[in-house]
């Protein structure tokens, strides 16, 4: 898979939220305001890159040679959660600006299924043949998540001002909007590279 294919896959055709339906809970939970959505999206992107950077070599050079590939999920949970915890502490000490922008979202992201999903995809799929492509996929999947959550947040801010039937206000209309977004994004999965 070439680089453009990975970019398109991460952003559109294999968009984590709208095509693979992973990471739905922050998608609905943190999309009330655009500011919060951007913070959450950046935190997810950051953790996804770290995840790919660590889990890919761990799986290829430790678990597979030892024949322990069935341990991948439990080891990934351990490694991702502790790494994010460490990074949070390092950020708090050395980059307080960045920490205040996405610090509160980091603990929410650690055990998210989108993160586990990206780790599982880069280790299982045969197209990611080296760590470079794996990290690229993580980066653009995170950006695809950011794109989806910011788009939804923008629409929800507008929806708050509409005179909707009472039964549709709040989450029902959000789910309907998310459904239409998913239908629109599913068209991208027809694109082949």
């Amino acid at each position: 898979m070439d680089i453009i294919g990975i970019i398109i896959a991460g952003l559109f055709s294999q968009n984590f939220v709208l095509v693979q339906f992973l990471g739905i809970c922050p998608f609905l939970g943190v999309s009330k305001k655009i500011d919060n959505a951007v913070g959450m999206g950046l935190a997810v992107t950051f953790v996804m890159v770290i995840t790919c950077l660590v889990t890919y070599p761990l799986y290829q050079y430790v678990l597979v040679p030892l024949g322990l590939d069935y341990l991948q999920i439990i080891v990934f949970i351990l490694v991702i959660a502790s790494l994010v915890q460490m990074l949070e502490m390092i950020l708090k000490k050395f980059m307080p600006g960045l920490y205040s922008a996405m610090g509160i979202y980091l603990p929410l992201v650690t055990t998210n299924c989108a993160i586990m999903g990206v780790a599982k995809i880069i280790t299982d799929a045969t197209v990611y043949t080296n760590i470079g492509t794996a990290v690229m996929y993580g980066l653009f999947s995170g950006l695809g998540f950011t794109l989806a959550i910011v788009l939804l947040a923008g629409m929800r801010e507008k929806l708050d001002k509409l005179n909707l039937p009472k039964a549709l206000r709040g989450f029902p209309i959000t789910l309907i909007v998310a459904c239409f977004m998913a239908m629109a994004f599913s068209v991208f999965s027809l694109v082949k590279f």
């Binding site: 322990l68 439990i74 080891v75 351990l78 490694v79 502790s82």
Partner: peptide
């Protein structure tokens, strides 16, 4: 034994790092 050792070892290293 190997599974427990590997998972436990990784957990121990990460815990110490934290």
């Amino acid at each position: 034994g190997i599974s427990v050792a590997i998972a436990g070892g990784i957990a121990l290293v990460l815990g110490l790092l934290i």
